[in-house]
């Protein structure tokens, strides 16, 4: 079971790297933000898998919750800032 978690964590890391293409050459700013949002939500699962891999999920699960809440609030605030009239697109 440990090797299964190891393999799935490796596969998940590769999957997380795929949206980086959209971050690098997304046509608009919003595409880049969307891709970073997708990366952040998938990282939650990666942290949980690493917790099972190290047999200490009771410690990693708190990190997972805090990361989920921080990522959500961060993406909300960036969206709010981008839609405000003070922001100028370059």
């Amino acid at each position: 079971m440990d090797s299964f978690f190891l393999y799935s964590a490796v596969v998940l890391t590769i999957i997380i790297a795929v949206p980086l293409v959209r971050v690098l050459n997304g046509p608009t700013l919003y595409d880049r933000l969307l891709a970073t949002n997708a990366i952040a939500t998938k990282t939650i699962v990666l942290i949980a898998l690493i917790g099972f891999l190290f047999d200490s999920i009771d410690m990693f699960i708190d990190i997972t919750l805090a990361y989920a809440i921080l990522g959500f609030i961060g993406s909300l605030i960036i969206a709010k800032y981008v839609s405000s009239p003070k922001f100028e697109e370059k």
Partner: peptide, 15 residues
């Protein structure tokens, strides 16, 4: 909610 906020920002900016 996060994706809705981003889509709303893009819609408000006229994308």
């Amino acid at each position: 909610i996060g994706t809705h906020a981003l889509a709303r920002a893009a819609y408000k900016r006229g994308l």
